[in-house]
Write a protein that binds this DNA or RNA. Sequence first.
DNA 1: GCACATAGTGTCGAAAAGGATACCGCAATG
DNA 2: CATTGCGGTATCCTTTTCGACACTATGTGC
Lengths: 120, 120
Amino acid sequence: MPRIRHERFDCSPGCTVEGTLRYIDGKWKGVVLYHLFEGTLRFNEIRRRIPNCTQRMLTNQLRELEADGLIARKIYPEVPPKVEYSLTPRGRSLEPVITALKVWGDANVTLAPEVSQAAA
Amino acid sequence: MPRIRHERFDCSPGCTVEGTLRYIDGKWKGVVLYHLFEGTLRFNEIRRRIPNCTQRMLTNQLRELEADGLIARKIYPEVPPKVEYSLTPRGRSLEPVITALKVWGDANVTLAPEVSQAAA
DNA sequence: GCACATAGTGTCGAAAAGGATACCGCAATG
DNA sequence: CATTGCGGTATCCTTTTCGACACTATGTGC
């Protein structure tokens, strides 16, 4: 479950902003959503796209996104397990938001020079 | 200091999304930014607009936003202290992002029933 | 028989975020 | 003299988040 940022969302006129943030807040949710905009992916396909994320964390994030109705989880009862993740319409409706975040990020999140080389 | 979501932002194609999130992540940053879009505000003016936020947390969030170059802090060396907060150009450039968050939130973050009647 | 791939789960512990409360100096106000 | 408003700090504590690591069952290939 994501951090519950405010138990009530009428605290202030801008609180739906925080409300949206509550859905995409979580260390890897933004990236997961981003990759799912490309299309349906299996668990390990996502995992390979986000190598820094541990299996347990990925499971957590996917479960939270599913609980929030943003992604759908389809299990194929085969014997090498197969699970596919895809966006729900609600999840897909986040696209402009993610896009806005990406646009700003591309312009402003300078993959910091000292970070990109040292990454200490 | 905000949570450092990823020490590297080249981990995955969608990582600038997370990079942007890093700036606005923090329990009250979204609301603070939202209010500052209205114009310059003094410390206690912001505080009164976000009554659920404690003084310590507000100070923290403002300091982080300042450190990230999103807001400017102007101190008037008067004897009843006076400090004004305003957006920097960089902060103002976040407006489309905050707006996208708000638009989605207004449509999808259903203010809990008892809340939405109060908001009506 | 052994390792590998699949999609997870369980437990532990460190670190960070966030909340509660008390305190600061100073001026004006009552 | 006491209180209020200003813009914070300092301290303590709880909750949440996140990462490391080990473990599961099943089927296939070697």
